[in-house]
Design a protein around this nucleic acid. Structure first.
Lengths: 239, 239
DNA sequence: TGGCGTTTCAAACGACCGTTTGAATCGCCC
DNA sequence: GGGCGATTCAAACGGTCGTTTGAAACGCCA
């Protein structure tokens, strides 16, 4: 009864052809990114990885656990780097509050580095992550919330110190908007094909240029004056 | 050979129990919103609608066409209202360019009205729409692009006049960010459960409060100074 | 009332799904 | 070389999927 997962035996530092688990994870990263969790079948996934169909259940237990492992593999180092950068930014700010720009940079720079590093998944993984944010499956939501919660809380407190005039509730909403723009940008789905006319921008630069342009947009949004009480969204006077 | 869709015969203005097509569309709106397109089966959908399984293929041809029809039903009036409001805003601005705030309001107010109107789908449909933005299925992407393209182009030109100093490429990116924050906000998935501590806000007010708070955030982001050339995203001096 | 196009219905179709099984194969240690 | 756990493999499991079918029920008009 293989209720408990068997332990790896010999971890050969194989450089030429990756072992079964890694091949599965790499294929999962790409296919889940392209098609989403539900629309990706284990049959096409194992075929793309060049492994037997049963290998997923043997090594990971289930399709859901494979998905979580594909996320965790890249997300844990990414989030740890984010925490370390935030620590550093706050240390260097000393008694003063770290600036919005620096805090946001601490959040985006690790993603930027990861996007440039194909060995850590590169752009593929960032798109998978952006996709996962928007996926409604309860196990995905629950997993991300457990995996991201602490980091988000740390950043929220940092932003609260950087924006002391901003009501806490308003900050919560704005971080919500920040996550939305970020995940949508990372996912790169862009249903409206807004980018069709951008043209000559080198493909290689796109992802970092995206985050480079995203940062000032988000900083300005975060620093915007809080919505005035009783000042409704209005089209023309008297509406 | 029922290759062509049969025509409706007697459109009874039924108020008590909606006809089959409407019941299917209502159930589709809710279930696609909750579970997404792939994860929603026609069997649970027709069961929820109280109609026969074959009714979907009879009335709509396929699951994909049903999805598109569920979107179109609400989206066409919504977008038309957006175009009309933009026309009005630009007419009132006269020779001058309409302000960013007004243009954005013309975009958000119809969504706000729809969120308040349960007869037109209310919050459910807005979440379905936000979800559809993030869905990678090619037929959804293609459909939204065809359905939204013209309206987005109109708004893009309006924003370009309101922000004449902003390079066109920068505006394209920023509208991308705007769409991201908007769709993520509408979808309301919020994998990180940022809202858990908001507390006492009345449930009924949430959706309009969301858009009320989103507007100043987005306006500030749109008005932010363009990213300086060679000014990289940086953490500390010299990084 | 009979006929006919529209709609509903139960049933089945073939295909694919995630998962399990049990035997075959591999790689190491005694 | 034999033994044994780890891994791979082909095959099948039960189930669900979207779609199709052909007959039954319905609603109108002649």
């Amino acid at each position: 009864m293989p209720a408990t997962r068997p332990a790896r035996r010999n971890v050969s530092a194989d450089a030429t052809s990756a072992d079964t688990k890694t091949r599965i994870l790499d294929a999962a990263e790409e296919l889940f990114m392209i098609h989403g969790f539900e629309a990706t079948s284990l049959r096409q996934l194992t075929a793309a990885a060049g492994v037997n169909l049963a290998a997923v259940n043997y090594h990971f237990g289930s399709k859901e656990e494979l998905f979580q492992m594909a996320l965790t593999r890249r997300l844990d180092p990414l989030n740890q780097e984010r925490i370390e950068l935030l620590d550093r930014v706050e240390r260097e700010a000393g008694a003063r509050a770290a600036s919005c720009e620096k805090i946001l940079a601490a959040m985006l720079i690790p993603a930027l580095r990861l996007a440039r590093d194909e060995k850590r998944g590169g752009k593929n993984f960032l798109r998978l992550l952006g996709r996962a944010y928007a996926d409604p499956a309860p196990f995905i939501r629950h997993f991300l919330s457990a995996q991201y919660g602490d980091m988000i809380q740390r950043y929220k407190e940092a932003f609260a110190r950087a924006l002391p005039h901003l009501p806490r509730v308003e900050l919560t909403f704005r971080l919500h908007f920040v996550m939305g723009a970020l995940s949508y940008t990372l996912a790169g789905t862009d249903a409206l094909k807004l980018f069709t006319q951008i043209g000559a921008a080198a493909e290689r630069d796109n992802d970092e240029m995206l985050l480079q342009r995203l940062a000032p947009f988000l900083v300005a949004g975060l620093k915007a004056p809080a919505m005035a009480v009783n000042r409704r969204l209005e089209l023309v006077s008297g509406e």
